[in-house]
Design a protein around this nucleic acid. Structure first.
Length: 947
RNA sequence: GCCCGGGUGGUGGAACUGGUAGACACGCAGGACUUAAAAUCCUGUCGCCCGAAACGGCGGUGCGGGUUCGAUUCCCGCCCCGGGCACCA
């Protein structure tokens, strides 16, 4: 019988679906749980390319393996189906994004099914489904109704805060909040309703706030920080500018400390953890207030180097700083206003690309140094960011490179206050670890700012102290004199949550008769996305939802018109899979208790600072409310690498109207132009199908094609990202059609470690294809006879089998799938050599191979009449006793170079081995008459003789 | 600039915790089968040198040093590639 994978796949697919084999139960299964999750895909119109399934295959193998190991495995799939592309398409064509999205989901589903993934589709979720976004809105309401209590270090209901305000005011409240004035209980009671609500808004975890946001005019919406890369939008690459806008935001900064410390215990890749640490950007230091001369005003700065305070020669304010107007004397108003205007009109992009450019202006005002009493000038500079710290810095040009650059440029005073301590034990050729340290005796004059640690000079009471001690001492002084306080700052900013877009979850907020924002009643959820006749903003610049007719809460109140960002639904979806059809809660308590958290999460590293941050934030929030019992959503995270494309290029000369086979050009490429050729027009050996190329790119129809000596036309290649525009996309459907799903799955794994990026090269797939055919031949002869016998297996055969079981088991745990595929190949090669067709061996081989090649193994399992399904059968146990070795072939090295091999029993005395080795005749010639100095015997490893 | 990864044959990659570098494949070369092709099977395949062959010699894991009986693996200093962050006080 021939190996006809497409028939097998059809038959087995039906077998599984008839048996409902992938249906996953909950606690009643009586088994320990294991939760494997793939990152939520956005169903794009392009479908999947060969790179996407990499992670899915890896998680699928793991899920199948865990299931065979006795776990109740949850391995669900769904869609993050709100998003920009469908909406952009809607704007262009008028087609409702829901329709486009549905079509794309259908296509994704077809592709998933072909690959034989063990998803339990009865648990499928879609973020754009009202049954799903009802709970996204519900969580938003909880965020709105919560504040973060820094004393208990958790989120609490806003009512507890109101109670405190009523009994004692806000003076002693430790909370994450925007700037508020201190008020007493009586004052609170006398505030109007809207004043009270205005204050509460400054404490809520979901809040409306006026802030500088990333505005993207081309997309017509604001973006969160992680959605902006290099000053342009991550999606589409459109310019982004800073704009002051009233926006819904989430107070993720309240969780900064927990988001940071929680990283330590996670089994995530170091690079992702580092990316998150940098993004959170915790720094310790102090705030200090500088009095403005002849004024009651003070300017507060934040610094991580309070020990350098005696080196302060100026202050710099961000152009957006709110005190600028008040401190600037009339004499300097004009220049200052001009400068502020200039800075304001510079886009984020310009600012970023011109980082080196130094700009600034003197305000005309002076501040008083809190310790020396000296007057120092107050400047405005673009290098100071409004959103970080206090928006003002103390200029220490001696010990900060930016301050140094600024001072040099504007000719401001520079004072040295920290001297580096020379390394007393300099190690030759070694990095001492100290940054910027100078060799002993070298002077610092004319050098740049020294940013390292050292000893204080020119610093009054700090003189002679080492940096760490000076910091401590100066902060004590600062606090004692009420100049400022010890402070921790974070780079992390609150997340902009509203989007001026149509295709997203409506924010469940309305505005009452006093225009106070209120969340809707939970019983009114979901607030459905209304129909609109066009998806663009209104003529008055309102978001698309303002186009909806008769869309009012309780028929009279205006709804909020912005929608939630793409990452809203994906911030909590892990819980919905546990209980996807629950009508009364986002997930039932019993389900949450059983499934707890994701044990194994797999997805791309591009989500390091976006999704993975919000995902953790929402989980922590839900935990604070007692709704879930876990602090972190995913214990172990693996980032699959990218599968790159191999682009094919044709070199040509326009003048000659001629294309050249690449091997003819050698080193003269620069004299020619090139153009992409679709990878599908090039055969496995790099040979271009010229006729097809001509009809694909008609502008080359009249060109001559210069072939090489073998009468071939060879394309140049480059490894690049797989993308439509590079014509290097390989579609998994084509591969599956040609080689079958099992072969596709195994080949993707065989390509290399899951975490690494690598180019897709279809050529290599033949190796895996041959392997599957060889496997088949252990079961069927060429003329279709069933070969499997019930003969007892020999020791040698069992050894081969159990060696493979052990290897595969270890490899799966380590996700080293490429080496398990090798192990299978070795096993089948060895069994083929022994002509082994014994059921005893083959049955276990099928079992261990089944997570990789589920279709073929299930088919053969059924042919072997083993009963049940291979999917639900137990993973075979290694019989270690078969693998015990009693002798070892030692490599014998002379001075570390292997010369020969000798076998010794493993329990042989080392001293006996030493003696025997030294007496060996073949080794004598290597000694060249010298007496061996030393012999090293490492049991079971090797022997080395030193002469 | 800073922070993470990574660099091994023509190609993808393997090598436990410092112990035989190049497993397993692809490709290539040669051969068998065939009228022929496909498929399949066999042999060889890191480089150089000697040789009829060797279970001969030398070199070799980006480069230069070091530690060690022994280094792809550990340490120091560089180079290159990929990714992230980027005036964060």
């Amino acid at each position: 019988m021939e190996y006809k994978f497409s028939e097998i796949e059809e038959q087995i697919k039906k077998f599984w679906s008839d048996k409902n084999i992938y249906r996953v139960g909950d606690a009643e299964s009586g088994k320990p749980k294991y939760y494997v999750l793939d990152m939520f895909p956005y169903p794009s119109g392009a479908g999947l390319h060969v790179g996407h399934p990499l992670g899915y295959i890896a998680s699928d193998i793991y899920s199948r393996y865990k299931r065979m190991k006795g776990f109740n495995v949850l391995h669900p799939m769904g869609y993050d189906s709100f998003g920009l592309p469908a909406e952009q398409y809607a704007i262009q064509t008028g087609q409702h994004p829901a329709i486009t999205t549905e079509q794309n989901i259908k296509r994704f589903r077809e592709q998933y099914d072909k690959m034989g993934f063990c998803f339990d589709w009865s648990r499928e979720v879609k973020t754009s489904d009202p049954e799903f976004y009802k709970w996204t809105q519900w969580i938003f309401i909880q965020l709105f109704n919560s504040w973060y209590n820094n004393s208990t270090d958790k989120a609490e209901n806003i009512s507890s805060l109101e109670k405190i305000f009523t009994t004692e005011g806000n003076a002693n409240v430790k909370a994450a909040h925007a700037e508020v004035k201190i008020f007493s209980d009586n004052e609170w009671k006398n505030f109007s309703e809207s004043e009270q609500q205005e204050i509460l808004m400054r404490y809520r975890l979901a809040f409306l706030s006026e802030a500088y946001v990333n505005w993207c005019p081309a997309l017509g919406t604001v973006l969160a920080n992680d959605e902006v890369k290099d000053g342009v939008s991550e999606r589409g690459g459109y310019p982004v500018e800073r704009k002051l806008m009233k926006q819904w935001m989430l107070r993720i900064t309240a969780y900064a400390e927990r988001l940071l410390s929680g990283l330590n215990d996670l089994q995530w890749s170091e690079s992702i953890k580092e990316a998150q640490r940098n993004w959170i950007g915790r720094s310790e230091g102090a705030s200090a207030k500088f009095q403005i001369a002849d004024s009651k005003l003070q300017i507060e700065v934040f610094t991580t180097r309070p020990d350098t305070i005696f080196g302060v020669t100026f202050l710099t304010l961000a152009p957006e700083h709110e005190l600028i107007n008040q401190i600037t004397p009339d004499s300097h108003k004009k220049e200052v206003e001009e400068y502020v205007l200039y800075a304001k009109n510079r886009s984020e992009r310009e600012r970023m690309t011109e980082v080196k450019k130094i700009t600034g202006v003197f305000t005309g005002a002076y501040a008083i140094h809190p310790f020396t009493g000296k007057q120092i000038p107050v400047w405005i500079g673009e290098y100071v960011l409004a959103g970080y710290g206090t928006g003002a810095v103390m200029g220490v040009p001696g010990h900060d490179s930016r301050d140094y650059g600024f001072a040099k440029y504007f000719n401001l005073e520079i004072i040295e206050v920290v001297k580096p301590i020379p390394d007393p034990f300099p190690k030759e050729g070694r990095n001492t670890g100290a940054t910027n340290s100078l060799p002993l005796g070298e002077s610092r004059s004319g050098a740049e700012a020294f940013e390292g640690e050292g000893k204080n000079i020119n610093s009054a009471f700090l003189d002679g102290l080492k940096t760490a001690d000076a910091k401590k001492k100066v902060i004590d002084e600062i606090e004692k004199n009420k100049i400022g306080e010890r402070k921790i700052n974070f780079k992390l900013r609150d997340a902009v949550f509203g989007r001026q877009r149509y295709w997203g979850e409506p924010i469940p907020v309305y505005y009452d008769e006093n225009n106070i924002p209120r969340v809707v009643d939970e019983n009114d959820l979901p607030i459905r996305l209304p129909e609109v006749d066009k998806y663009l903003p209104t003529e008055t610049g309102e978001p698309p939802l303002a186009n909806a007719k008769n869309w009012k809460y309780k028929n009279k109140f205006e709804f909020e018109k912005t929608t939630m960002p793409g990452w809203a639904g994906s911030s909590w979806y892990l819980f919905r899979y546990m209980d996807p059809h629950n009508k009364n809660a986002f997930a039932g308590k019993d389900k949450l208790d059983y499934w707890k958290q994701v044990d194994f999460y797999i997805g791309g590293s591009e989500h390091a600072t976006g999704h993975l941050m919000y995902f953790r934030f929402w989980t922590k929030f839900l935990k604070d409310l007692g709704l879930v019992h876990i602090e972190e959503p995913a214990k172990r995270l693996v980032n699959q690498g990218m599968i790159q494309g191999v682009s094919q290029m044709v070199y040509f000369s326009k003048a000659e109207m001629k294309c050249y086979s690449t091997d003819l050009l050698r080193n003269s490429f620069e004299n020619y132009n090139w153009t992409y050729a679709d990878v599908n027009l090039v055969d496995a050996k790099g040979n271009l199908d010229i006729e097809k190329f001509k009809s694909w790119k008609p502008e080359f129809a009249e060109y001559k094609f210069q072939l090489n000596e073998d009468k071939k036309f060879i394309c140049a290649t480059a490894v690049e990202k797989m993308s439509k525009s590079k014509y290097n996309v390989v579609n998994p459907d084509d591969i599956i059609e040609k080689y079958g799903a099992d072969c596709f799955r195994m080949y993707e794994m065989f390509l290399g470690p899951v975490e690494m990026s690598k180019p897709w090269d279809t050529k290599g797939i033949d190796g895996v294809n041959r392997f599957l055919r060889k496997l088949w031949k252990l079961f069927y002869s060429d003329d279709g006879k069933w070969l499997v016998t019930n003969e007892a297996a020999t020791n040698e055969e069992l050894k081969i089998l159990h060696k493979t079981i052990k290897k595969v088991e270890d490899d799966i745990e380590k996700l080293s799938y490429n080496t398990s595929v090798s192990a299978f190949m070795i096993c089948v090669n060895e069994l083929t050599d022994l002509k082994c067709h014994k059921a005893e061996v083959l049955k276990d081989l099928l079992l261990i191979l089944s997570p990789f090649a589920p279709f073929t193994t299930e088919f053969l399992w059924q042919e072997m009449k083993q009963g049940g399904s291979i999917v639900t059968t137990e993973f075979p146990k290694v019989r270690e006793e078969l693998l015990v070795k009693n002798s070892f072939e030692y490599p014998i090295a002379i001075n570390g170079k292997t010369k020969t091999k000798i076998t010794f029993a493993l329990d042989k005395e080392i001293s006996t081995i030493e003696k025997e080795v030294l007496d060996m005749e073949i080794l004598k010639k290597y000694f060249e008459g010298r007496a061996p100095k030393k012999i090293i015997v490492v049991k079971g490893k090797m022997i080395n003789v030193v002469v």
